[in-house]
Amino acid sequence: MNDKWVNIEELAEYLSITVDTARTWIKAGNLPAYKAGRRYKFKLSEVDEWVRSGKIKECDENGKKV
């Protein structure tokens, strides 16, 4: 299987959130991410699974569980 990888800007657009929100969720350990040097990379299949699992609903904009 050939999974698509995206950067944080593409991920924010994909999820219809801001880049700042994505960074907050990463720092809180909520969003599945990989560090490549100084940048984050995201496997869309993992992000899709994270959304389907309902975990996106557990995060507010500050990365805290609600």
Results as ranks from 00 to 15, higher is better:
residue 1 M to T: 00
residue 1 M to A: 10
residue 1 M to Y: 02
residue 1 M to G: 12
residue 2 N to H: 06
residue 3 D to F: 02
residue 3 D to M: 03
residue 4 K to F: 00
residue 5 W to I: 05
residue 5 W to F: 13
residue 5 W to H: 02
residue 6 V to S: 12
residue 6 V to F: 04
residue 6 V to E: 09
residue 7 N to M: 13
residue 8 I to D: 03
residue 9 E to G: 14
residue 9 E to T: 06
residue 9 E to C: 13
residue 11 L to H: 04
residue 12 A to Y: 00
residue 12 A to C: 06
residue 12 A to P: 07
residue 13 E to N: 12
residue 14 Y to V: 05
residue 15 L to H: 02
residue 15 L to T: 01
residue 15 L to P: 03
residue 15 L to F: 02
residue 16 S to N: 15
residue 18 T to S: 14
residue 18 T to K: 09
residue 19 V to Y: 11
residue 19 V to A: 07
residue 19 V to T: 09
residue 19 V to D: 15
residue 20 D to L: 05
residue 20 D to E: 15
residue 21 T to C: 07
residue 22 A to K: 00
residue 23 R to K: 11
residue 24 T to L: 09
residue 24 T to C: 13
residue 24 T to D: 09
residue 26 I to P: 03
residue 27 K to L: 11
residue 27 K to T: 04
residue 28 A to T: 02
residue 29 G to D: 00
residue 30 N to T: 05
residue 30 N to P: 01
residue 30 N to K: 12
residue 31 L to P: 03
residue 31 L to N: 10
residue 31 L to S: 08
residue 32 P to F: 05
residue 33 A to H: 06
residue 33 A to G: 02
residue 34 Y to K: 15
residue 35 K to R: 14
residue 36 A to C: 10
residue 36 A to F: 06
residue 37 G to D: 15
residue 37 G to L: 03
residue 37 G to V: 02
residue 39 R to K: 13
residue 40 Y to D: 03
residue 40 Y to R: 09
residue 41 K to H: 05
residue 41 K to Y: 01
residue 41 K to F: 05
residue 43 K to W: 00
residue 43 K to C: 12
residue 43 K to I: 06
residue 44 L to P: 01
residue 44 L to A: 09
residue 45 S to N: 06
residue 45 S to M: 03
residue 46 E to V: 01
residue 46 E to D: 13
residue 47 V to D: 06
residue 47 V to C: 06
residue 47 V to W: 04
residue 48 D to T: 07
residue 49 E to G: 03
residue 49 E to R: 09
residue 50 W to R: 02
residue 52 R to T: 07
residue 52 R to A: 10
residue 52 R to M: 01
residue 52 R to Y: 07
residue 52 R to C: 00
residue 53 S to H: 09
residue 54 G to N: 12
residue 54 G to V: 00
residue 56 I to M: 09
residue 57 K to R: 14
residue 58 E to M: 10
residue 59 C to L: 12
residue 59 C to R: 07
residue 60 D to M: 13
residue 60 D to G: 05
residue 61 E to S: 10
residue 62 N to I: 01
residue 62 N to H: 11
residue 63 G to Y: 02
residue 63 G to H: 13
residue 64 K to S: 12
residue 64 K to D: 15
residue 65 K to M: 02
residue 66 V to N: 15
residue 66 V to E: 11
residue 66 V to K: 15
